[in-house]
């Protein structure tokens, strides 16, 4: 397909929470197949930025174009974009009243009208891929955090998305479980998925990212390939941030 076509385009996007300006004139273009890592201190607007892409937040000014669709209040456009964009949350947000398998098939069956047997087959295939097929019949509460997050990734993939958003996917995990989740994400990146990942995992950023976007106070301060970003950050703010994240 159009390998160079833009998956996400943001132009002069601003967002206010009351009087607080969470995003200031943000410009960002992510092309198909690219992997972006978004980092920055807490409160810098990283989460808000990626939540605009599937319209979990609405922007107040500027333009957000995803997969060729300009996002506005039209719910049909919003749903059309959401079906193509998978999202993984910091707190997993699995549906506790459904089994792992049902968590995966809910979207394809009810938002994509996929026949159930087809959805089940796809779901099992994805559970194999995230290496927990034996948990299919269990409820999420019985799984460890790392397993739950892998189910959440599989749930998003089950919609056959063209873009995957990760909002601090390992921040709520115990240290020994971070690896298993990152491994799945690295594999996904190698398979060519377009990804935007908000994370503090700089090792992951170094190996996977095509570009690192550094944000502070609602602005994109710096956007550079990882080699350049880690060896010679262009701003003082990025230098301070890096020394804090890498220095411990």
């Amino acid at each position: 397909m159009m390998q160079d076509a833009a998956m996400v385009e943001m132009e002069k996007v601003s967002k206010w929470f009351g009087a607080f300006r969470a995003l200031k004139d943000v410009d960002l273009v992510v092309r198909r197949g690219e992997k972006y890592v978004v980092c920055g201190p807490s409160g810098s607007g990283k989460s808000t930025l990626i939540r605009l892409i599937n319209r979990l937040e609405t922007h107040d000014a500027g333009r957000v174009r995803v997969n060729g669709v300009d996002l506005d209040d039209d719910l049909r456009k919003v749903d059309a974009v959401r079906r193509e964009v998978g999202m993984v949350f910091q707190s997993f947000n699995l549906f506790p009243h459904l089994t792992v398998l049902e968590n995966l098939t809910l979207g394809p069956v009810w938002a994509r009208n996929m026949p159930l047997h087809e959805a089940n087959a796809l779901a099992m295939q994805l559970l194999e891929r995230v290496r927990i097929p034996e948990q299919a019949a269990k409820y999420p509460a019985r799984l460890s955090g790392g397993q739950q997050q892998r189910v959440a990734i599989a749930r998003a993939l089950c919609m056959k998305p063209q873009l995957m958003l990760f909002d601090e996917p390992t921040s709520a995990l115990d240290p020994e479980m971070i690896r298993e989740v990152l491994d799945v994400m690295v594999e996904l990146a190698h398979e060519g998925m377009t990804m935007i990942v908000v994370t503090h995992e700089m090792g992951f950023a170094r190996t996977v990212a095509d570009r690192i976007v550094f944000m502070d106070s609602g602005e994109i301060v710096e956007s550079a390939p990882p080699g350049q970003f880690f060896s010679s950050p262009g701003t003082e703010r990025a230098r301070i941030f890096l020394s804090r994240v890498l220095g411990h």
Partner: peptide, 21 residues
């Protein structure tokens, strides 16, 4: 709120989100 957001992120319509999730 995360449950609403997870259902929204899948592109479920209002009624399906409400009834199923």
């Amino acid at each position: 709120r995360g449950q609403y957001e997870a259902a929204d992120a899948l592109g479920l319509s209002y009624w399906r989100k409400t009834v199923l999730v």
